[in-house]
Design a protein around this nucleic acid. Structure first.
Lengths: 192, 192, 192, 192
DNA sequence: TATGAATGAGTGTTCATTCAT
DNA sequence: CATGAATGAACACTCATTCAT
């Protein structure tokens, strides 16, 4: 059944988001998914491949959402704001995705996928920035650097070590979303 | 001899910066330091404690440098720019510190120290921001959020996945340092 | 269908001759035979039983051929020479049978069958030798020992480690067949 | 201690000779040697390397003995006879060496060493044969083929499946040694 | 009869930690 | 103080066998 494959991926994702790669042993994934360890190897050639897929799937989904949120607007500024807000809102909803982005995966191959994921996130913002710069909505700047900074910024603010404190301090999620959005928009040079 | 203790910490730091926590086994640290594995346990109760100290020492040193760089200026804008530039320049000089900040440490306790380190970095920027806001150099904003974003921003731009590409693309380190500084200053609301 | 049974045995035989017992897993046999793994267990109670049959069938066929080759002659010397030649020629034609005879089977039970096979090969030669000794074609000797030595001799020359070199060196298969035949005939005491 | 290394090799050798490679798991070797499994990896990079050494050491020792036995004589016939006798006597003394020569080791690398061993045994006999042929003690023949056959012959007679029966049947070890020696000498063309 | 998904015990290997010297 | 040999629990992965469909 292809249902088991999904169960395995989901179990792996859950374990990573809760306890990091460190606690996501094959046996634990199997237990979480309610299957035997051997079954995991029917669907994935190795633990590495499983976690590469976990990351890929998670990132793909987020990328789609980001681009979708941006596509609902025409102004680059609104696109940027919407993409950031979409990302932040989702991240605040649960720890599922968060951990994977700051984690140093045990395996270099998984790490490569994580790196690719961050790069792809950056590309979403870079595209928006480039269009905005061309339309004079943003000042001239190195869009790649700004995009990387934006990714780093909300990653840190959301899933980084400061996040728990920020969440407590700021008056509810809406407030935090708004703060992050403003910082990132300013970083892009958009005059608020 | 307390000299051995230093040699061990230095060896551990070297190994982490070169190959990450993954390749920094106790035996490897001992070999790098030129001591026996047993000796490490005379100075540190566990591998975890050793790496907590490695991080603490490294972060302490950076904090001092950051604050020192900022103290050379009076304008908040200049302080912020100097602190960022100091951090970025040092990070570009070598991988020594960089890796430790995005790495997911093997051990939760080490992770806790890493988190504390990032928070302390954030505090440096928060203090500068708060002073600047009070003096109307920066617009009203949540200084904690902005500070976290700044830490995330240059961490990503420096040691994140995009870094290698950025380094190749931008015309030399000086160019990259400048780009990052500008983004962060804009993020703080400083009109360039 | 009994056709499936044959297909399974044939597939197992092919895999063993190509890659040894090591690569002849049940799943691989099933794939090679174009059936499911489960079907194998409908015909054989265990993997062991399957490979015991593989060996038995292969050896039976060879024994028949050996005896047939010998039966075409009346002189013991010619019988011995013909039997050896028949075996050697067949072995040189393909690796099919060869591997199974020096291989240490995974399973003691399969090993027992292999041992039985070699013994039965020895008996073919022992019978020829005994008849030859009685007719004074061969000198008095321990026919069992000589027979075992003959089996060992051509097994080594054919499938042992020296085989590849011998095949390259000697001028074609015909030459090697002749050399082995001569050595074995001399071993039996037949004056060439 | 280098004593442990020897204990490990000896334990591995014992297990192989008693139960074959199949029963010589790392844990079993450790138990037999009275050490922990981890200690084995202090001396050997892998299970494979351990068993390669076990074979190499065993074969080296036998080769020295074979050549030594032959060196005590001047006639090629006597040399050949002495070498065979030496090998056979030792083999009859215990199962230690025996199993390793017919076993198909689990690992290709170990198998390669086994193959090399048999080849080196063959070379001992080939050298003796070549000298004897030159001195007209033996008739013209393919010395490589004869050497391979001799190795195969006594391997089969000694450690092959027929061995147990031969041992029971023949009147004591001395008798069997003599029979094998005679067969091999005849195979070389030496007129007894 | 036939399938092949599912099982889970077993194996080689790593590495933080200890302790006799 | 200092050594480094020794430990052993833990982990990824394999594969013969079973059984619901």
């Amino acid at each position: 059944m292809t249902r088991n494959r999904e169960r395995i991926v989901q179990a792996a994702r859950t374990l990573v988001s809760v306890g990091g790669f460190r606690e996501a042993q094959v046996a634990a994934v199997a237990a979480e998914a309610g299957v035997s360890t051997g079954l995991i190897y029917r669907y994935f050639p190795s633990k590495t491949e499983l976690f590469v897929e976990v990351l890929t799937v998670a990132i793909d989904a987020e990328i789609v959402i980001l681009r979708g949120a941006a596509a609902a607007h025409t102004d680059a500024r609104d696109q940027l704001g919407a993409a950031i807000e979409a990302f932040v809102r989702r991240a605040l909803a649960g720890p599922a995705l968060a951990y994977a982005f700051i984690a140093e995966p045990v395996d270099p191959e998984v790490d490569a996928e994580r790196i690719r994921g961050r790069r792809r996130f950056g590309e979403v913002f870079r595209d928006i920035l480039l269009a905005g710069i061309e339309r004079k909505e943003f000042p001239a700047q190195d869009a790649d650097v700004t995009a990387a900074c934006i990714v780093g910024a909300f990653t840190e603010a959301l899933v980084g070590p400061v996040a728990p404190i920020l969440r407590e301090k700021t008056a509810g999620p809406a407030q935090l979303v708004e703060s992050i959005r403003e910082v990132c928009l300013r970083a892009a040079g958009s005059v608020g």
